[in-house]
Design a protein around this nucleic acid. Structure first.
Lengths: 93, 93
DNA sequence: AATCTATTTAGATAAACTTCTAAATAGATA
DNA sequence: TATCTATTTAGAAGTTTATCTAAATAGATT
């Protein structure tokens, strides 16, 4: 699997905002939803995109579903982006 | 301006492939196009997305348009992604 | 068991995106 | 100036995406 899904998941502003929310820790789908002016169904759709892209993972407790950032995939994307960065030929000096 | 446009530009596989091509240096729109099984019009559309996102910039010589990677914007995206990374609270130890 | 709460799934719709063909622009050359 | 080459713009068509409403699932509580 490649970066395609991950970058596509990052391309949506609602999903980016969800990720920023999750920086402060685990949250349930409902809590996340309350931060947006959208139906729970729509939030659920975005969460499934993020989960599919492995940017978050979920865990269940009672009838709640908790979402949490999966830091390691961010590292991978950063690594991929690095190839285009300014200091790519630093060692050629 | 935010990361929205840039991340949206990165979300398309053709555009990512164009960026990889450009790693080896400046290329004309035509040269880029020859690497894909698509019309010049379509390539032009993708190049305009990349330019708009400031991931590349263009320069003109004769009737050619050259495209080139703009490394600095990659740095910005990397910086934004870093907030979600593993070592975010390194200094709390 | 019946009902309540949290979340997801299905189906529909409107908007956005990718691609094409045909035409337009612009510089280079005969 | 007429024409050739390189690229972009305009308009159309098909596909994908984001959103909604309504219904389904699943665990918790009465």
């Amino acid at each position: 699997m490649g970066y395609g899904e991950t970058l596509k998941a990052l391309a949506d502003p609602v999903r980016r905002e969800i990720l920023v929310l999750l920086k402060s820790g685990k949250m349930t789908a409902g809590e996340i939803g309350r931060h947006f002016n959208m139906t729970g169904a729509t939030i659920s759709y975005h969460l499934s995109m993020l989960k599919n892209a492995e940017l978050v993972f979920e865990s269940k407790y009672k009838n709640f579903v908790y979402y949490e950032i999966n830091a390691s995939v961010f590292e991978e994307i950063i690594l991929w982006l690095t190839q285009f960065g300014e200091n790519k030929n630093e060692n050629e000096k």
